[in-house]
Deep mutational scan, measured.
Amino acid sequence: MDVFMKGLSKAKEGVVAAAEKTKQGVAEAAGKTKEGVLYVGSKTKEGVVHGVATVAEKTKEQVTNVGGAVVTGVTAVAQKTVEGAGSIAAATGFVKKDQLGKNEEGAPQEGILEDMPVDPDNEAYEMPSEEGYQDYEPEA
């Protein structure tokens, strides 16, 4: 019985440690998101679009440190934060509304985080759909 109880105690310690790591990862992701939003706020009209992409990228980098179902929630929060940063930029006159959601080359930025393969159960990952990809044929 002692062996059984000791095993359960060790398992509990492992769960607590994993929860603490997840909590730490979420806190880091939130900190990076805040950094990115402050970065966007300090940019001029020309830099705002690039700044919004930076927020998304920093958040995406930190999301990889967070495991399990938390990833889905962090990704949703990050996307809403990026959308909010863009709205703030438009409201303050840093950028025109028609410039939001495009990178410096004018290509749409939507789907940055949505296409990231995420499995809350950590069982399997699927690649994003290939609808947006084109076949590449090298020139002879």
Rank of each mutant, 00 (worst) to 15 (best):
Q79N: 09
S87A: 10
P108S: 11
S87Q: 10
Q24Y: 14
G86Q: 11
T59D: 01
K60C: 14
E131I: 12
T64C: 14
F4K: 00
G31Q: 09
V37G: 01
Q99Y: 10
P120Y: 05
G41I: 04
K43F: 11
G132Q: 13
E139G: 07
D121C: 08
P108G: 09
G14D: 02
E131Q: 12
G84V: 12
E114S: 13
G106Y: 10
T22D: 00
G101T: 06
T92W: 11
Q134H: 03
A17D: 10
I88V: 04
Q99W: 06
P138S: 07
E28H: 05
A107D: 06
K10N: 05
A89R: 14
E131H: 10
K58L: 10
D119V: 07
A69C: 15
K58G: 00
A29K: 05
K34R: 02
K60Q: 13
K6P: 00
E130S: 07
A140S: 15
K80V: 08
K34I: 10
G86I: 11
G132H: 04
E110T: 11
G93L: 13
S129R: 03
A78S: 07
G31A: 11
P128F: 02
Q99V: 11
K43Q: 03
E105M: 04
D98M: 06
I88L: 13
V66Y: 13
E46Y: 10
A30G: 01
Q24A: 15
T33R: 01
T59Q: 01
G106N: 04
E139N: 13
T92D: 03
E35W: 15
E130W: 08
Q134K: 07
Y125T: 09
A91R: 05
Q24L: 07
V16W: 13
V82E: 02
S87Y: 05
G132T: 06
E13W: 03
V3L: 08
K96F: 14
V40H: 02
Q79R: 08
A29P: 00
E57P: 02
D98S: 15
V3R: 15
T92L: 07
G106F: 12
T44D: 00
Q134L: 06
L113R: 13
Y125G: 11
D121F: 08
P108Q: 11
V40D: 00
A69P: 02
V70G: 02
H50W: 10
V74F: 13
A91W: 07
G41M: 13
Q99R: 04
K97V: 15
V66A: 09
S9W: 14
E83S: 04
K12V: 14
F4V: 01
P120A: 13
N65G: 13
K34E: 00
Q62Y: 06
V15T: 01
V55W: 09
E28R: 09
E104Q: 11
A17I: 12
V77A: 10
V74Q: 01
Y39P: 00
V71W: 14
K43Y: 10
A69Y: 08
G86T: 05
E20D: 09
Q62F: 05
V82I: 05
M127I: 10
N122W: 05
V82N: 04
M1D: 00
Q134S: 11
K12P: 00
E139W: 10
Y39I: 08
E137M: 04
E35C: 04
E131G: 04
T59A: 12
D115F: 13
G73Y: 04
D135Q: 09
G111K: 06
V70E: 02
G25W: 08
S9D: 02
V66G: 04
G14H: 14
G68S: 05
E105C: 02
D119Q: 10
T64P: 05
A89K: 02
V37D: 00
D98Q: 10
P108L: 06
A18E: 00
M116H: 11
V3Y: 11
A56Q: 05
E20T: 07
K43W: 11
G14T: 15
Y125E: 05
K102E: 15
G106D: 07
D2K: 01
T64A: 07
G41S: 12
A91V: 11
L38N: 08
D98R: 05
G41V: 08
E114G: 12
G106T: 08
K60N: 01
E35T: 12
V3C: 02
V49L: 15
N65H: 11
Q24W: 11
A76T: 08
T64Q: 11
V26C: 14
S129F: 04
M1H: 00
K32S: 02
E28W: 04
V74E: 02
E46N: 10
E35P: 01
D98I: 02
A78E: 01
N103Q: 08
N65P: 02
E20G: 02
A124V: 14
K32G: 01
G111M: 12
Q134E: 05
G36S: 15
P138H: 06
A56T: 09
V55N: 01
A78K: 03
G132R: 15
G68E: 06
P128D: 10
A11L: 11
V40T: 01
N103F: 03
G67K: 03
G84Q: 12
G47T: 14
Q62E: 06
S42E: 12
A76Y: 11
G31W: 07
K6L: 03
A29L: 08
G7S: 09
T64G: 09
E130G: 08
A69W: 14
K97F: 02
E20S: 03
G41L: 01
G73V: 12
V52R: 01
G31I: 03
V16K: 10
G68R: 10
D115T: 09
L100T: 04
V40C: 03
V70D: 02
A76S: 06
G25P: 01
V3P: 00
V49H: 09
A140N: 09
Y125K: 09
L113W: 07
G36W: 09
G47K: 05
T44A: 13
G132F: 12
L100H: 02
E137Q: 05
T22L: 05
A56H: 12
V3N: 03
V55P: 01
A53Y: 05
V55T: 02
T81Q: 09
K96S: 10
Q134C: 12
G132I: 13
N122Y: 02
Q24P: 00
G41R: 07
E35N: 08
Q99G: 13
G68C: 07
D119E: 08
G84P: 02
G101Y: 15
A69R: 08
G73H: 08
E57V: 08
H50L: 11
I88S: 02
E83F: 04
A29D: 00
Q99A: 06
V118G: 15
E137S: 09
S87M: 15
F94H: 14
D121W: 04
D135K: 04
L100W: 01
T81K: 02
A85H: 02
F4G: 00
A30W: 11
A29H: 05
D119S: 03
T59N: 01
K6V: 02
Y136F: 09
T33F: 03
T59W: 12
A27S: 12
E104K: 14
V52N: 00
P117N: 06
G68L: 14
T81M: 07
D119K: 02
T22M: 11
E126K: 08
E130I: 08
G51R: 10
M5E: 00
F4S: 00
D98N: 14
D115P: 03
N65A: 14
T75C: 05
S9K: 12
A89E: 05
A76L: 09
E20V: 03
A69N: 11
K6Y: 04
V16D: 01
G106I: 12
K10P: 00
V118E: 14
G41T: 08
E131V: 06
H50G: 06
G73M: 12
V49P: 02
Q79G: 03
V16T: 08
G7V: 13
A107W: 05
A107P: 11
Y39V: 14
Q99S: 13
T22S: 12
A53H: 09
V16G: 04
V40L: 14
H50Y: 15
N65F: 08
E123T: 09
V49E: 02
A140T: 15
A140G: 07
A85V: 08
A76E: 04
G67N: 06
V40W: 01
S87P: 10
A29E: 00
T59Y: 15
K21V: 11
A85S: 08
L100S: 08
K60P: 04
E46K: 06
E13M: 06
E126C: 07
E35V: 14
E105A: 07
E105P: 03
V82Y: 12
E123F: 07
Y133P: 14
V95N: 09
